[in-house]
Simulated assay, not measured.
Amino acid sequence: MTLLGTFRGNPRNDLGWLNSAGRPDPEATFHRANLPRVGLDDVAAAATGVMCSVALYLQDGDLVTNLTFISAGTAAGTPTNHFAALYSGAGALMAQSADKLTEAWAADTAKTFALATPQRITKSGIYYAALSVTATTVPTVVGSVGAKPFLTGEGNLSQTSGSALTGTAPATIATPAFKRAVPLVIAT
């Protein structure tokens, strides 16, 4: 067995399809994403007033200023509040965006939420990017489907928490519940 385990190919050749996914060079344009740009579909974020948070790996030294989510086939219908927030791996609020209130969110549209305070990451690891939308129709988002964790130490790729949220992110991700739909988030 080698450093690559039982894999016998050239990892660069095997992972070459990722280079064709259209991501910019992270050395030229800082970004982190929780999912590749292939195999994505239209998924439900969460019910109105409920926060959905997704695991996002960030590296020591990253400066996260914005979180971007992309609506899918369903636009927001009569939104009253929507915000994004960044949480530590332990679920503590680090920063949130301003509440976008009644701002429209059309179908198939990227929406960038600027964090009120940019966050310099001091320890590489899993963080949580969260989205909450209060509306008569919550938009669907671009994302994927993930499996429920079953090994000791595994965390949720996507989870819901809170209820009746409006424009303020909770101080912690309290009693998270596993969510099969995993929204795509891009941190810049």
Results as ranks from 00 to 15, higher is better:
Thr168Phe: 10
Tyr57Phe: 11
Lys123Asn: 03
Ala174Ile: 06
Ala47Thr: 08
Val141Asn: 02
Thr166Ala: 15
Thr65His: 02
Ser158Leu: 13
Gln96Ile: 01
Leu151Trp: 15
Ala107Phe: 07
Met94Ser: 01
Gly155Thr: 15
Leu67Gly: 04
Asp99Leu: 02
Pro79Trp: 00
Pro118Thr: 10
Thr166Glu: 14
Gly125Trp: 03
Pro139Gln: 09
Thr166Arg: 15
Gly91Ile: 09
Thr48Arg: 12
Val54Gln: 12
Leu115Phe: 04
Leu40Cys: 05
Gly89Met: 09
Ser53Phe: 12
Thr136Met: 00
Met51His: 04
Phe178Met: 04
Thr80Asn: 10
Gly49Asp: 09
Phe30Gly: 06
Glu27Asp: 11
Leu115Ile: 13
Asp60Phe: 00
Thr175Glu: 10
Asp41Cys: 02
Val138Phe: 08
Ala84Ser: 05
Ala107Ser: 09
Leu157Pro: 03
Gly125Ile: 03
Leu58Thr: 04
Met1Pro: 04
Gly77Gln: 08
Ala47Leu: 12
Pro26Asn: 10
Asp60Gly: 01
Gly89Ser: 09
Ala84Glu: 00
Ala169Lys: 08
Thr74Phe: 05
Val54Ser: 02
Thr188Ala: 15
Ala116Glu: 10
Gly91Phe: 10
Cys52Tyr: 02
Asp14Ser: 06
Tyr87Gly: 00
Arg23Asn: 13
Leu18Lys: 10
Lys179Val: 11
Pro118Gly: 01
Ala75Ile: 07
Leu151Thr: 13
Thr6Cys: 05
Asn156Cys: 12
Thr6Gln: 13
Arg23Phe: 15
Glu27Met: 09
